[in-house]
Design a protein around this nucleic acid. Structure first.
Lengths: 306, 306
DNA sequence: TAAAAATACTCCATAGGTATTTTAT
DNA sequence: ATAAAATACCTATGGAGTATTTTTA
């Protein structure tokens, strides 16, 4: 059995006329008659009752016709789909964000993707720490990571997007909240709250900032994510140093302050170096072309969330 | 595009090995490689990433693979179905019964069909008068009719199945209910209830029976079907002469009595003379082979339903 | 270096063309 | 008598075969 035969059958079934069907198929009439005969012989079923004046579907032919129409339509759809998947128009993109970058960048990211590539389904992994993202990329669990770089890993392409200052998250009633800008060296005795993972890039930025100010941070508590961390700050258990992206993440009871003397931290975009996915390629093009990431989330002014 | 190519693709996608897939397809390896290449070229999509050591579906190939599997399975099903329809194993049979024959014959009919030809869907038209059945057969609204014959119609094949005596339906409190057998001539003054249609075969049997007994029936009421007719009898509005098949149809308040001096009535099976339907042929064979119709519904004994 | 896919080239099966016949209205 | 499908016959495309080369793990 061949698709051609099914297409021929379909044409004859629609017109109930071998001559006209042959014309429509750009085929001579005898070829069409033979092809349909072959189909009938292979099925062992008479699909048409023919006289020279009348061609008519048999009952079996009617059933087969509706099936064949559906089948051919399905095939068309499958062909279109495989082409879309291959061109990256359709597919799934698995993206990870760190806790703070999710707050600042996810909305723009989702907006660009939804407008430019509406047929790409997004699978968002929010609040994934940088080392976990690296691992997930290497294990092909995600396709794209927004992480705190730079990262030393040959198998990944890591492109810095944004250099952000660090911010200080303080309980609203903290002794330093009146200061518009806090000095890093004033924090030497403060209890710090950090992310749970030892390898967190934000934790490293904290360590580096403290080192610049000639003290070692006193780390009192650890939280698994940004929300939990800020909840501990709000509860007055300590203070935290976070990327400027976290500014809008401050809940009630936490105020954000610019810090003088702290290091900066980079937001980077990471993909597998050998990833050939057309979906990824299209996504990166669209993001570049439509102003992702946001130009910068840090502002010189203090901004309170009480 | 050809089905062959889809089948080849399917085999390679399953094995991820051109050599083994070719073997399974009883094909040389180069032919398979070429066929898959042709498919890829036509789609404009790379379906496999190949090295001499590793064959692997691309993302697009994975999508296409699942689609193709479904497609080929659907095709198999369609082929099986068209063969079943052609052989009469599968299909629809539209059957009409007269009101009384539905009571006596429909259960056996349905049982035989359900057991012998479970894949034929039955479309039952019950309580259809003989002339309506003839019309419906000629208009191809039904395939098989159980009607009161004989019928003079060249385009139908009508086969008598059963010759039944007529029964008398009486209100339970009627003056004649004590009689085990009622004489036809005793009914000359009774009010009769008949079917609504003038051409009803049962009505004709009533007329013939009365003619034999030398009186013309006094027809008081008309009912559109057996149930309504018997309800009028139960209400005491009159009596009715019905085929023996109606014996089990008597509701509360109606008694059935054998009649002496009445005509008989035939139950016949009718089909279109030119009907080639394999479903019909199979059904008729099954009915013949499994003792349809019931040997006879009339019994010499009186039987009451009070 | 060995296993496996790709390439080169040949062949023949068959789909489709033209010419003609058959058939039903 | 005529329209339309079937049949007869021929041609050429291209699918599949064998032999060989290329590639990569």
């Amino acid at each position: 059995m061949e698709l051609k035969q099914l297409r021929y059958f379909e044409a004859v079934a629609q017109t109930c006329h071998f001559g006209r069907a042959a014309e429509r198929l750009h085929l001579a009439q005898p070829a069409l008659s033979q092809a349909v005969r072959r189909l009938e012989k292979e099925l062992g079923v008479e699909l048409f009752t023919r006289t020279t004046r009348q061609v008519q579907l048999t009952t079996a032919g009617q059933y087969f016709h509706s099936d064949v129409r559906r089948l051919l339509a399905n095939l068309e759809q499958s062909i279109e789909r495989v082409r879309n998947v291959a061109s990256g128009t359709t597919g799934i993109l698995r993206v990870a964000f760190t806790g703070t970058s999710a707050h600042s960048q996810l909305p723009l990211f989702a907006q660009i993707m939804g407008q430019q590539l509406p047929d790409i389904a997004l699978d968002i992994h929010a609040d994934m720490l940088t080392p976990d993202q690296v691992q997930a990329l290497l294990e092909d669990q995600i396709d794209l990571g927004l992480l705190r770089g730079p990262v030393e890993e040959q198998r990944l392409l890591v492109r810095p997007l944004l250099r952000e200052p660090m911010l200080l998250a303080l309980p609203a009633n903290h002794r330093l909240t009146p200061e518009p800008v806090v000095e890093m060296r004033d924090l030497a005795t403060e209890p710090f709250i950090t992310y749970g993972a030892e390898l967190s890039s934000v934790n490293e930025a904290l360590a580096a900032s403290c080192r610049q100010a000639d003290f070692a941070p006193r780390i009192m508590h650890r939280a698994p994510g940004t929300a939990a961390l800020l909840a501990l700050v709000a509860a007055g258990l300590g203070i935290a140093l976070l990327p400027a992206s976290a500014r809008t993440a401050a809940p009630r009871g936490v105020v954000m302050r610019d810090v003088s003397g702290a290091t900066t931290i980079d937001l980077s975009l990471a993909v597998r170096a050998d990833d050939q996915s057309p979906v990824l390629a299209r996504a990166l093009d669209a993001l570049d072309a439509h102003g992702f990431p946001h130009p910068g989330t840090s502002t010189p002014q203090t901004q309170e969330t009480a």
